[in-house]
Design a protein around this nucleic acid. Structure first.
Lengths: 121, 121
DNA sequence: CCAGTCTATCGTCAATCGACGATTTACGTT
DNA sequence: AACGTAAATCGTCGATTGACGATAGACTGG
């Protein structure tokens, strides 16, 4: 049984579940084309007024507002009030944990002595 | 109107929508604690037999199988047949586009002359 | 060749998501 | 004070997701 898996000798992190949930929440915040689009717009321009984002994304105002709410709740963006508008900016850092995980994965790629991955797809 | 947004003079990429969808699909593949957990297990050990993952994740076998299917479909993992088992490994590289986006965001953080972000949460 | 093991698929059900229009809130302007 | 604009919230509806048990498929070992 499990010939290729060492007997789980590594330090079993107790509350890894919490991290899993946190990372999953971050990923979920990005798990929609409209939200990716918003992040990219905010990455190009340094910040952007909400109503411009509505034009940019091409969905109803209420829908875009909902996507902004999700991103804000995840901490990915922040909004500074400029009445009657709101100026959104990226809140970097928030994505750091997810970026770190992905970096680890890519790192293993670089180290990669991957045995050709014949796959079974 | 939109005092802080330049008039969108930048090179408007025609099929940015496709990239958005692609990135969103990758993020979605990671948008669940169980799938994050699987990725992390595969990152620690270099590869792992499916039935061990079932133990590790702690959900029903059929549920774990479904999560594995999602990750496989997104290209995040591959499975090599070792009858009657299947040995799963990370397929790095697949996550590169998402990692690149996140790296860009964090990079802007580093450059960061962020104006104190007073927020309106 | 039959039994056992591991994995994938199917069917079902509750819960969540995503989109929209309509409405409300909160301002600046005239 | 009345109006206009930008954003958030509400209610609804269809689609998707996530979980599970049951079942089917594929091969190994006795």
């Amino acid at each position: 049984m499990s010939a290729c898996c060492p007997p789980s000798s590594g330090p079993r992190v107790a509350d890894a579940t919490l991290d899993d949930a946190r990372l999953a929440r971050l990923a979920k915040a990005l798990a929609h084309p409209a939200r990716i689009h918003i992040v990219r717009v905010l990455l190009e321009r340094r910040s952007c007024i909400g109503c411009d984002l509505v034009d940019e994304v091409g969905l109803a105002q209420s829908t875009v507002s909902e996507h902004l709410r999700i991103l804000k709740q995840a901490g990915v963006i922040t909004g500074r009030i400029e009445r009657p508008r709101i100026c959104y900016s990226l809140a970097p850092g928030a994505l750091a944990p997810l970026a770190a995980l992905l970096a680890s994965v890519l790192e293993q790629d670089a180290a990669g002595i991957w045995p050709a991955t014949p796959a079974e797809d």
